[in-house]
Write a protein that binds this DNA or RNA. Structure first.
Length: 581
DNA sequence: ATAGGGTTAG
């Protein structure tokens, strides 16, 4: 009898136990940090041990917390434990279950669960369908996602809400169908479901990524006019878009605007600016952005410090980068692989390969796992320091560890091999890669064509050139430059000058390098008239003869007539040079 | 205040 009374007390929502759990869940929700998931797990265990078990809502809240921390497998384990303890599933727990499977790349299983829900007589709801649509989007099966959405509309299985529209709009954006996404946004506005900041943000972000920042700004204005308030994510997307296209000043203004509108920038917002300034080499501005962030009571995180380290490394100021690293460690922030990659890359670029190798070992001792970027940097360092054997060994090692080389790795590898006189090996390796989609890269072809000229094999270069055109790759200035050198080497300078004209027709402007090669070769062949034409053209376009071309010019002065145009050009160049100094 | 959506480094 006593036992029954205790049981009754536990069932009551006002019971001290229930409110105790509620308080702890609330505390966890507001809290943060690495202990969050562990604390949640602990609480879950305590709740599960209670007989009778607490309210299912509390369990759901707790598991949601874990889902928000992206611990999907853990969440699934907890749901299964609840099932084992005889706590019946409801549509909420089922939806979490489906979501977790979708997040773990098991969208098919998600659909199998949908069938189960039907069988059990619980009808799926909007959340169930949105989750599944999102699951398809996550694995790039956007066409199917859209089909499912259409079917739901057609068969009137549900009335889509903002989340569902947002999910489909996001899917369309993800596969580059921004205009379709915009259409759907307009369509939803024509209906009963009002659009909100989420749908707009998705499209704004997508427009920014499509390099249509001004269109994004227009949509942003349109959304504001409609009374939809932008939030921190909208602003982050816009600031990111502006920064990506060198419009940092406008980005900084956008930051001021958002604060005026009462939207507080987050650490992420400042990180976007910090990163952008670092990438374009102005670490000083980045440091100012960090100060601005600290003034607002925000704490720089690993991303902030990593960006600064990368910025200093790119400028070759390794000492400064090391100082930043020390600073972040003092703040008890843990550098990750991305942080160290910047440093390793910095050491390699400075030819401090010994230092790079020590750090490479050190981070592994710490338990960090080098990724493709780490290996690629190390490869470059080894090749640049004239150690192709060690480089090749490392390349094999990385693959043995299950890391697939990416296009950057291949570029570094082939460039390194060519620079270390391993042309034959390079070409053989390239052939062996054969049809790999990955090697359909114009930069890679250019590297190899360059390699061919260095080993004096113009014929192989010509083959490669035909091959890349056949694959539909678009030559860059560098490709053309390499090919012009090939023609020169082959003794068909005429083809070289022809290509210079053709590249421009193809919408690729010759650069200083192109002209220098041509002019130099023409001078060598004593084709002064032709040399004049190109020399004049290059000067008009703002390019100067380089050292080697200039020497060729000076050597020829005695051979050209007093009234020669070439002589006038040379005089102009030398006079101009004197005036400047 | 039980489920589902948008931004995020090298």
């Amino acid at each position: 009898m006593k036992y029954t009374i205790i049981q009754l007390r536990c069932y009551s929502t006002a019971s001290p136990l229930t409110s105790h759990f509620n308080q702890r869940i609330l505390h966890l929700k507001n809290g943060s940090g690495p202990t969050k998931v562990n604390d949640a797990l602990q609480l879950f265990d305590e709740m599960l041990k209670r007989q009778p078990p607490p309210n299912i809502i509390q369990f759901t809240q707790l598991i949601s917390l874990i889902v928000k921390e992206k611990q999907y497998s853990t969440a699934l384990i907890l749901l299964n434990q609840m099932k084992l303890m005889g706590i019946p599933a409801n549509i909420y727990t089922m939806n979490i279950y489906i979501n977790c499977h979708c997040r773990l790349n098991q969208v098919a299983y998600g659909f199998a669960l949908l069938a189960n829900i039907f069988k059990q007589g619980h009808p799926p709801n909007l959340a169930t369908y949105s989750t599944l649509i999102h699951g398809l989007v996550l694995v790039d099966r956007v066409f199917e996602a859209v089909e499912l959405f259409k079917k739901l509309l057609r068969d009137k299985l549900c009335d889509p809400d903002q989340v569902m529209y947002g999910t489909v709009i996001n899917g369309l954006c993800k596969v580059g169908q921004t205009s379709k996404a915009l259409e759907l946004l307009t369509f939803m506005e024509s209906g009963s479901c009002k659009s909100c900041v989420e749908q707009y943000s998705v499209v704004i972000d997508s427009l920014c990524k499509d390099k249509m920042v001004d269109h994004a700004l227009e949509l942003f204005a349109k959304m504001t006019e409609k009374g939809v308030l932008a939030d921190v994510i909208t602003y982050n997307s816009l600031i990111h878009g502006l920064c990506n296209f060198g419009r940092e000043t406008e980005a900084a203004k956008m930051l001021r605007d958002m604060e005026e509108e009462g939207v507080s920038p987050g650490v992420d917002t400042f990180n976007i600016l910090v990163n952008s300034f670092c990438k374009k080499g102005s670490v000083k501005d980045a440091e100012l952005a960090v100060q601005a962030m600290v003034r607002r009571g925000l704490n720089p995180d690993v991303i902030t410090y990593s960006a600064l380290i990368d910025g200093y490394c790119l400028r070759g100021e390794i000492d400064e980068a090391e100082k930043v690293l020390d600073g972040m460690v003092e703040k008890e922030l843990v550098p990750n692989i991305i942080t160290y990659n910047s440093l390793i890359n910095g050491y390699c670029k400075k030819k401090r390969i010994g230092k790079a190798m020590r750090l490479f070992q050190e981070i592994q001792d710490k338990g960090l796992i080098p990724d493709v970027v780490t290996y690629s940097s190390m490869l470059q360092g080894l090749y640049d320091s004239g150690n192709p054997a060690a480089a090749r060994e490392l390349f094999d090692k990385m693959q043995a560890k299950g890391l697939a080389p990416d296009i950057c790795t291949y570029r570094i590898l082939f460039h390194g091999m060519c620079n270390n006189s391993q042309y034959t090996d390079a070409l053989a390796l390239f052939q062996s890669l054969g049809g790999k989609e990955l090697v359909k890269d114009i930069v890679l072809y250019t590297i190899l064509i360059d390699g061919c000229t260095k080993c004096g094999k113009p014929n192989l270069a010509l083959d490669l050139y035909d091959e890349l055109l056949l694959k539909g790759l678009e030559p860059t200035v560098r490709t053309y430059n390499a090919m012009i050198r090939v023609y020169c080497q082959e003794g068909s300078l005429g083809k070289g000058t022809e290509l210079l004209r053709k590249m421009e027709e193809n919408g690729c402007l010759p650069d200083s390098f192109t002209y220098n090669v041509i002019v130099r070769e023409l001078l060598k062949k004593n084709e002064h008239r032709e040399a004049e034409i190109f020399l004049e053209e290059m000067i008009n376009r703002g390019f100067m003869p380089d050292h080697a071309t200039f020497e060729n010019l000076l050597v020829r002065i005695p051979n050209v007539g007093k009234d020669s145009h070439l002589r006038t050009i040379i005089q102009k160049l030398t006079n101009g040079g004197r005036k400047d100094t």
